[in-house]
C-alpha cells in the first residue's frame, strides 16, 4: 500500500493523476481528529490489479475541502458523512443537505472535543 502525504491544493490534481494511472475505485473517505489538526484520508484502488493507495492531507479547524464528486461519484455519501461527523465544509457540492435525518445544527460528534452524554446529569 502506497501512502501519499499531500497538501490541500494538490488534491484534485493528484486524484486526476491517480485515475489516469488506473486507480478507478474509491474505497472510502475518512478523517481522524488529532486535536491540533485533522487528517483526511482518501482510500483509492485499482480494481483490475487490486493495487491500493491512500492519499492523506492535514487540515486545520475551519478549513474547507474541495469536492471530488466529479471524479468519483461514490464520494457523495462519504463527503456528506465527513461534513456531518467532523464539521468539515466541502466546497462545490450541488446537494448541501446533510446525510442523517434531523442532524442539522448539532456539534460534529466524531471530533475529540465532543463529549458524549454531556447533557446528562445524575442527581
Amino acid at each position: 500500500m502506497v501512502k501519499l502525504k499531500i497538501s490541500k491544493n494538490e488534491l484534485i490534481e493528484k486524484l486526476n493523476e491517480a485515475v489516469k494511472e488506473g486507480y478507478n475505485y474509491l474505497v472510502k473517505i475518512t478523517a481522524v481528529d488529532y486535536i491540533d489538526h485533522l487528517e483526511v484520508i482518501y482510500f483509492i484502488r485499482n480494481i483490475e490489479n487490486k493495487k491500493e493507495e491512500n492519499i492523506r492531507l492535514d487540515i486545520k479547524d475551519g478549513e474547507r475541502l474541495p469536492t471530488i464528486v466529479n471524479i468519483f461519484k461514490a464520494a457523495d455519501f462519504y463527503e456528506r458523512e465527513l461534513s456531518e461527523m467532523f464539521g468539515i465544509e466541502i466546497e462545490g457540492r450541488k446537494v448541501e443537505r446533510l446525510l442523517l435525518e434531523k442532524w442539522d445544527g448539532l456539534e460534529a460528534p466524531l471530533r475529540k472535543k465532543f463529549e458524549w452524554g454531556a447533557d446528562y446529569k445524575r442527581d
Binding site: M85, L99, L100, E101, K102, W103, P109, L110, F114, W116
Partner: peptide, 10 residues
C-alpha cells in the same frame, strides 16, 4: 437515513 444511527464509531 439516520433513524437507526447509534454512533458506533464514537
Amino acid at each position: 437515513i439516520g433513524f437507526l444511527h447509534r454512533g458506533v464509531e464514537k
